[in-house]
């Protein structure tokens, strides 16, 4: 028996929305003046991004999950060409349910790719916001994540595209798209959280 799902997304309409978002991000130049969020809003979001970094770096993944909306998605493409996800595989493209499964897996104590766990330091910069329809807020930022596991030291870099929605006075992540700058190139252990 499969339990009733809380996740309603990932139908064809969802993919259409994703296509529109990708198109907007791909061609984004200067953010139009009337789309620039008020200063206070960007301050709130920046604090939230830093909180997210801290939770991931400390591997407090249950608290991290709480930052996502019930219909939130976490996406690490395996291409750098903004390809249509209906026909393109990603390193990860998780709805809320699969994101929870991912965290549960790491909690079993038998996820050998994370024994010992990868240590990370999330560094964020170039944080920009853009007001979107339906009260959504798009946020773009660059990241650099030094990572270490055993003898393996390397950094992951790229940019993140977020979509936030305000629910009961709290911003929730509707989408986190982690765009590794070398997403289409060979990747070693990616079982930690980006």
């Amino acid at each position: 028996m499969k339990p009733e799902t809380k996740t309603t997304s990932f139908d064809l309409a969802f993919y259409d929305r994703m296509a529109a978002v990708l198109n907007a991000w791909k061609h984004l130049g200067e953010i139009p003046l009337d789309k620039i969020p008020p200063h206070g809003m960007m301050e709130e979001i920046t604090r939230l991004l830093y909180l997210e970094s801290r939770l991931i770096d400390q591997r407090r993944l249950r608290e991290w999950l709480d930052l996502f909306a019930a219909d939130g998605a976490y996406w690490i493409p395996a291409d750098v060409d903004y390809r249509d996800p209906r026909r393109t595989i990603a390193w990860e493209f998780n709805d809320r349910r699969r994101l929870e499964e991912r965290v549960e897996r790491l909690e079993t104590g038998q996820a050998y790719s994370q024994i010992p766990p990868t240590r990370t330091v999330h560094l964020l910069s170039n944080i920009e916001g853009m007001l979107a329809d339906d009260g959504l807020l798009h946020v773009l930022c660059n990241f650099h994540i030094p990572a270490q596991r055993g003898q393996d030291h390397q950094a992951r870099s790229g940019w993140c595209g977020y979509i936030f929605r305000k629910e009961n006075k709290h911003w929730k992540i509707v989408l986190k798209r982690v765009n590794l700058f070398d997403a289409d190139q060979p990747q070693s252990n990616l079982s930690f959280t980006l």
Binding site: F10, L12, Y15, P85, R86, R87, T88, I89, A90, W91, E92, F93, R98, E101, R102, R105, A111, Y112, S113, S188, N189, L190, S191
Partner: peptide, 19 residues
């Protein structure tokens, strides 16, 4: 579309531990 999402499962839930 479901084939794509299905093919992401084992790599990120299983292959990582194999590696």
């Amino acid at each position: 579309a479901i084939r794509m999402r299905m093919q992401e499962d084992f790599p990120s839930f299983g292959e990582v531990d194999d590696s």
